[in-house]
Simulated scan of single mutants.
Amino acid sequence: MANIKSAKKRILVNRAKAERNKAIRSGVKTAIKKVSAAIEANDKDAAAKALVAATATIDKATSKGVYHKNTASRKVSRLALAVNKMN
């Protein structure tokens, strides 16, 4: 454990940020799973709605610095491609 006050604060702040980032990443994964589930069920309307929600979630995560913009763009692109490939 750190002895210096600033180092103790760093530990606390980093822990709080890590928990926040973990929660945001979990939300993104959940949104992606909802899109995948709709695709598996072959429900185009539900997949399209889930895609819009997932895109918004990923964009929010990117704006908060949890994901790099290219990573977010890749995730959105892959989801959109999967939804557009549906019959």
Rank of each mutant, 00 (worst) to 15 (best):
L79T: 05
S36I: 10
S73Q: 08
A46I: 10
I58H: 01
A80S: 10
V28M: 06
S6H: 15
V35C: 04
R20L: 03
N84C: 05
R15W: 09
N14V: 03
V13M: 07
N87F: 02
I58V: 15
K64F: 00
H68N: 06
N87Y: 05
A18N: 11
N42D: 05
A48H: 03
A54I: 06
V28Q: 06
A23C: 07
N42K: 09
G27H: 01
T57K: 00
D43C: 07
K29F: 07
S63A: 02
R74G: 11
L12A: 13
I24F: 00
A80I: 08
K29P: 06
Y67E: 03
K49I: 14
N42T: 07
R74Q: 12
A48Y: 03
G65V: 01
K5L: 15
I39M: 08
G27Y: 01
L12G: 08
V83R: 04
A50T: 10
D45M: 11
K85A: 10
R74S: 14
V83A: 04
A16G: 04
K60P: 00
R15V: 08
V35Y: 02
K8Y: 10
A18I: 05
K5N: 14
I11W: 09
K9A: 14
L51A: 04
N14D: 11
V13R: 10
K85I: 10
M1F: 13
I11G: 07
A7V: 14
K22C: 12
V52K: 09
M86F: 09
V83I: 11
A2T: 14
V35S: 06
M1I: 15
K60E: 05
G65S: 00
V28C: 09
K9E: 13
K8L: 13
A53F: 08
R78G: 12
A37W: 03
S77F: 10
S6N: 15
K69D: 01
R20Y: 02
A18H: 12
K34Q: 14
E40P: 06
A16F: 05
T57M: 03
G65K: 00
K5E: 15
A41W: 06
A23P: 01
T62S: 03
H68V: 06
K5G: 14
S77M: 13
Y67T: 01
N84V: 04
H68Q: 12
A56L: 07
S63G: 00
N14A: 08
K17P: 01
L12I: 13
A16S: 10
K29C: 04
K75F: 10
D43N: 08
M86Y: 05
N14H: 08
V76S: 07
A56W: 11
A7G: 10
R25I: 04
M1R: 13
S77I: 12
D59L: 02
K64C: 00
I58K: 05
K33N: 14
D59W: 07
A56R: 09
A31M: 05
I11M: 14
I4C: 15
A41V: 05
A61V: 00
K49P: 02
A54G: 07
K49W: 11
S77R: 12
A31H: 02
V52W: 11
N87A: 02
M1C: 14
V52F: 09
S26L: 05
R74D: 13
L51E: 01
E19P: 02
I32T: 11
S6K: 15
T30Y: 06
N87D: 06
S36V: 11
A53I: 01
